[in-house]
């Protein structure tokens, strides 16, 4: 009887965790499949939705599919550029919102929240409507994609940096000024190092949002092909296995960055 009760209690204690882990597995199954398929040799069959034979060739020749690597490079270019601009503008705005009181601050907060709460299809078609109405309908491409990406990354940057800034004790800056640091020195010696993790996280988020965006990009890209658009284009015909290589690499790089950062902070605390 007590054994049964103990078993019941054990299940009660661990049931939620077990279910949570199951959800976690659900989230990772597709990624595991992507990794697996990056080693799939489908040269003997046209079926791209089943694992046929093991091969290294997708990894050895990632650029074999026509236009894929160009699309990846273009996505990286747009991603870096959009990240740079969005991170700078967004960080400045976050400082304004946290550290300065000005007329229209709450309105600004609302406008910043809206892009995160609007369906991409609506934002994308609005932007397209603007470009068409202002005569850029025929000149869609790199620049219009860049504009769109900065637009939707901005809100995420502002929110991320704001969170970090809000958690920053203003006493620290006052302490620095009390200890003979000028405003400039205070910013670079105290404020910036403490806000930097937030800025870095915002930049990482921006890049991945930009690199991954399809719906808004597709509406405003004209003839320019980004990596997600390439995938969309080939998805109808059957994707080349090298797409899975790119997916795997993206996943590994981001895990490396995020886990590395986590271990670094943990080590600092433990030291």
């Amino acid at each position: 009887m007590t054994g049964l009760q103990r078993a019941g209690r054990w299940i009660g204690e661990h049931l939620v965790l077990a279910l949570g882990l199951l959800v976690m597995v659900y989230m990772f199954v597709p990624i595991a499949v992507v990794m697996l398929m990056s080693f799939n040799d489908n040269s003997k069959s046209r079926n791209v939705y089943a694992f046929q034979d093991f091969t290294w060739s997708n990894w050895a020749h990632p650029c074999r599919p026509n236009g894929m690597c160009d699309a990846v490079v273009r996505s990286i270019e747009i991603g870096l550029l959009a990240t740079l601009v969005a991170t700078i503008l967004g960080s400045l705005a976050a400082f304004a919102l946290v550290r300065h009181d000005f007329v229209g601050r709450s309105a600004a907060n609302t406008v910043i929240f809206l892009p995160m709460a609007s369906p991409e299809i609506v934002m994308g078609s609005s932007l397209l409507a603007l470009f068409v109405a202002s005569g850029f309908g025929g000149r869609l491409g790199f620049v219009t994609i860049f504009i769109a990406h900065v637009m939707f990354c901005l809100s995420f940057v502002i929110v991320t940096v704001k969170a970090r800034l809000t958690g920053l004790d203003e006493n620290l800056e006052q302490a620095a000024m009390d200890l003979y640091a000028s405003e400039w020195t205070t910013f670079w010696r105290v404020t910036f190092p403490l806000v930097f993790p937030g800025v870095a996280a915002a930049a990482l988020l921006s890049f991945s949002l930009s690199f991954d965006d399809f719906i808004i990009t597709n509406l405003n890209a004209g003839q320019t092909v980004t990596f997600p658009m390439f995938v969309w284009g080939v998805a109808q015909r059957g994707i080349p296995m090298q797409v899975n290589v790119v997916g795997t690499v993206m996943f590994l790089i981001s895990m490396f960055l995020v886990l590395g950062n986590m271990l670094a902070t943990r080590k600092k605390v433990a030291a």
Partner: peptide, 10 residues
């Protein structure tokens, strides 16, 4: 110089 209430150590 000041010793701050919650110390404000960097």
């Amino acid at each position: 110089n000041t010793v701050f209430q919650n110390y404000a150590l960097f």
